[in-house]
Amino acid sequence: MLQSCLYKHPTVVRITTRCITENHYKNLDLDPTADLKQIKKSFKRLSMKLHPDILLSQELPQDMLRKKKNHYLQIKKSYELLMDPEKKASYDRNIAVRTAAGARKAASTNSQRGNFFHYTRVR
């Protein structure tokens, strides 16, 4: 069944997960020196102002509501990243590298593909 699924109804192969560089601290109204407690506090303070449930009764026009919702999602994403110790550490390192060496590009090891059979697309 899976076989036919592949040919008749081709499903998809995962290739990349997005990773956008943006200023997560700024999204949360914080300095890069902020600790977990401050991050949490700031997120909750912003949530109280910008969460869709809070906006619901303000009778805002649809497009404004959508814009605010996206803004809130951005904030939430930054919060989730910074609350994850591993992701936060790597993000902090990244900032440090960038500020130390200007806009130096991270060394890319993306050289040639060894041979054309070697696919690692399926994760």
Partner: peptide, 30 residues
């Protein structure tokens, strides 16, 4: 969502706070 070969590719793990939006890029298999 289902990906190539019947694998489950999780996008939103359980206990994720709502509202949420997650995007991932995929490609074709053939």
């Amino acid at each position: 969502i289902e990906t190539y070969g019947g694998l489950f590719s999780p996008l939103i793990p359980r206990n994720t706070t709502v509202p949420c939006k997650i995007q991932t890029t995929y490609s074709t298999a053939v």
